[in-house]
Design a protein around this nucleic acid. Structure first.
Lengths: 251, 251
DNA sequence: CGCAACATTGAATGTAATCAATAGATGTGG
DNA sequence: CCACATCTATTGATTACATTCAATGTTGCG
């Protein structure tokens, strides 16, 4: 059975055989293009919870794609307050905001054991010129990030605490479904505090809203495990701000 | 003197002679590349106040660069509420969020008489492959949009009404300086209502904060005309969230 | 087991929204 | 040119929601 193990390892280290390829950079590439991309993508040992992908101030080395686990991106203000900019799940790219200044402004940390692929940005840019399909997909992913942030801006600017939590849960739900997991039952990779720092709420408010949604039989939550019992009600709550259908990418 | 007029007109319709070229797509291109880019960029008659560049649901035709005036990007929720996603000044690109879905989700409307350049997205993408300098700059501008939204997310998620207004004014200030205008005295291209819809505040709150900042001698505002009397105080107010130095792009 | 991190709940406070009225600016047609 | 309507902005009074401060409960780890 040793051969089997080796096979699994080989499968894992190729974009062509990655089950995320339709969500990630390789999307739309033909066999040859894929092979070329594969040559520059690096896959290293997984990160453990608390390990950093990069830190604020680091010069832009690589763009990272989450392969498993979850990554939190956050920034620190002058006064040391943390703000969570987003959570990244498998198939999603981290570090796109650093291209302009060629320097990261945020910290990317693993919320749990997580594996990732990385590609040096200079090479990625070069490849985007050479492989039109890759350039196309990369621009799409950049644009998607902008779209998602637009939706998030709307949520943060205009929605109540309850609506924000509802939108957050539905967003996660659709992203898990996209990954082939259950959309109605999942485990949150982040603590309540990070949800609060992401949505602009205090941890107490987050906790109270979770309790309220539970009293109203809309969700049932046991620590990090969440079950959406009444998706329609949750949908109604977020006032159409979350676009649960066909949504993907950052929360 | 008729020749002079013709000359001015010619100057205006070339990226090579546009005074915004260092802020816009042509940045970093050599003479030949510039000439190629110039061939596909369209410059049409200016928009009047209230004219639309595109509307939600429109398929992605072109990417637009504001040349003069100001453009507001906003979206409507299911319930018809407006949310302003941003304001675009000369040298800034509008419509980058539509690349992913190949469809606009927002409305782009001129806040005042505004001119613009447009480039069909399919051609832009093709050119990005052919001219590495253009691809590089376009990715930078996409990335910059993401960075600015990140900063905005922080502002909306964690700042008080006063801090939001302070950050908003400083952001506009730095963008006007970048364009060569006064950083301390400018005219707001948008009404109070739009500022509120952008910052997640009601028009009443916006008005009250403006009044308060005036009582505190930090600004003086007469309708749309704003003078920043005490930039240091304004800076202190926004708690380091606005990064007034070297900031550029969307508010 | 005992500690530390995470989470929940309650009471009091404060900020911004809402409701409401007024004032000023802009534009139109008589 | 003025009367009127409309749009925009300001200010005040009240209300509602989320924060803050505080205490307690729970889980998992060393």
């Amino acid at each position: 059975m040793k051969a089997n193990i080796v096979d699994l390892a080989k499968i894992k280290v190729s974009c062509g055989n990655c089950n995320l390829s339709e969500l990630c950079l390789p999307r739309g590439l033909d066999h040859d293009e894929l092979a070329q991309l594969d040559r520059v993508i690096k896959r290293t040992t997984p990160l453990h919870k608390g390990d950093y992908l990069f830190r604020a101030g680091d010069s832009l080395g690589s763009i990272y794609a989450v392969r498993s686990g979850a990554v939190k991106l956050y920034s620190l203000s002058d006064t040391g307050e943390e703000h969570v900019l987003g959570f990244y799940l498998p198939g999603e790219l981290v570090g796109l905001d650093a291209i302009n200044a060629e320097r990261h402004r945020g910290f990317a940390v693993a919320l749990e054991t997580s594996s990732y692929c990385s590609i040096p940005y200079s090479q990625l840019e070069e490849f985007c010129s050479q492989l039109p399909g890759l350039g196309h997909q990369f621009l799409r992913l950049m644009s998607r990030e902008i779209s998602h942030e637009n939706r998030l801006l709307l949520t943060l600017a205009t929605r109540s605490a309850e609506e924000r939590i509802a939108a957050f849960l539905l967003n996660l739900s659709s992203r898990y479904r996209r990954l082939g997991y259950s959309a109605l039952e999942f485990r949150l990779p982040m603590p309540r505090k990070d949800i609060g720092l992401f949505l602009g709420l205090t941890i107490e408010t987050v906790s109270r809203i979770f309790s309220r949604l539970q009293r109203e039989k809309i969700i049932s939550a046991d620590r990090r495990f969440v079950r959406i019992s009444n998706p329609a009600a949750l949908d109604r709550l977020c006032g159409g701000a979350a676009a649960p259908v066909a949504s993907a990418g950052r929360a």
